[in-house]
Design a protein around this nucleic acid. Sequence first.
DNA 1: GGCATCATGTAACATGTTACATGATTTT
DNA 2: AAAATCATGTAACATGTTACATGATGCC
Lengths: 189, 189
Amino acid sequence: MLSNTAYVILGLLQKCPLSGYDIKSHVDISTSFFFSASYGQIYPELKRLEKKGLVEGTELATGRRTRTEYAITAAGQAAFDDWLAQPSAGIELRDEGLLKFFFGGGLDRDALLDKLAKLRAARAADLARVHEVGEDLPEIADELQREVLDYGIGLYEYVIGWCDQMTKRLAARPETDFPVDPNPCAKGD
Amino acid sequence: MLSNTAYVILGLLQKCPLSGYDIKSHVDISTSFFFSASYGQIYPELKRLEKKGLVEGTELATGRRTRTEYAITAAGQAAFDDWLAQPSAGIELRDEGLLKFFFGGGLDRDALLDKLAKLRAARAADLARVHEVGEDLPEIADELQREVLDYGIGLYEYVIGWCDQMTKRLAARPETDFPVDPNPCAKGD
DNA sequence: GGCATCATGTAACATGTTACATGATTTT
DNA sequence: AAAATCATGTAACATGTTACATGATGCC
C-alpha cells in the first residue's frame, strides 16, 4: 500500500529517529545509487506516515529553530517487516548516455569517441562518490550495507571497463569505415 | 524540450516508419533494459510529435483494420541530432531487491539467503531475455546496438556473480552469528 | 559580514503506470 | 473455435522533480 519511498524512510528510521533533512542526507549518500528521493517526496511522506501511525514526530527546539525527529512505531516496524518479506519488483534502469550511444549509428567515429569519453567520465565520478561514502562514513554502514556499497563499486567498475573496451575498439578502426544498414525497413527475409 | 520518450521514438523512426504498437515492441525488446515506455506514453507522445511537425502519420488500411505508421520528418531528424549532441544526464537505477537486502539487517541468515536466491533468479531471467533478443532478432541491431546489448549481458552477469559471491559468504557462516549495532544512534565518536 | 549548512515546506509541473475499453486478424 | 497477436487509445492514478519561499545557526 505504501510507496517505496515510505519503506526507505521506515528502513532508515529502524536504526534511530531522524528528521526529514537527515533522511534526505542519508538517502543521498547511502542509497542514492539504487534509490533516490527528493524533499518533495520525503516531507509529505513523513506526514502521511504519521497520520497512519507508522512514525511519530517529536518537535525539538534548538534555540529558536525547530527540528522534527521522526521515530518508527511498532505498527511502522510491522509494516516494514511485512514489506521486507514480500517478493521484489524488477530493476529499473534509465541511462540517457547509453541511449544516445545506442542511437549513435549516424555519428562519425570521433563523435562516438567523444560520447564514450563523457560516459566514462560520468561513471568514474559516480564511482569516486561511492568510494568516498565507503571511506568517510564507516558509521552509516552495517555489514550488509557495506556489501551493497561494494555491489555499486563493482557495477560502476564494470561500466567503466566497458567504456574503455569500446573506446579501444572504435579507436582502432579507420575513421570513415562505418556500417550503414542498406535496407533498414525490410521485414524478415 | 522534448521528453526522453519522444527522443526514443524519433530514434527508432530514423530507420523506418513504425506504428505505436511497433514502437512499443521495439522498446520492449531492444531498449528495455536501459529505457522502457508504455502505451500510455507512446500514443499521446506520437500525437504531440505530429502536432509539432517532427513526425508524420499515415493511415494504412489492411482490410478493415487501420494502422497508423509514423515517419520522422526533416525537422524531427534535426531535433534528434541536436539531442544526440547534448550532454547526457546521469543514470537512474531503482532496485527494490537490493533495497531490501540493504535493509535486511534484522533478518536471519536463511531469510537473507532466500532473498539472494530470488534476486539471482530474477537477474538470471533478465539475462536470458537479453540473450534471446541478441540471438533471435539479429535484424534489429546495427553494430552499436549489438554492443549495447553486450553491455546489458555483462551487467547482468556481474550482478549474478555478486549474488553468488554473497550467497557463498553467507552460507559459510554459523546461523545465528549476526552483528547488531550496539549503539546505532551515536553521532560521531 | 558572508557563506555553508541546517531545516521545513509547497505548488506547479513532468513523467509514467495501470486498468480499462474495443475490436480485427492470424495462427493453432 | 479458441487463443494469440495486432492495433489504438483514454482516464485515473501514482510518482517524482524543480523552483521557490523562509529563516536559523555555525564557522571563517
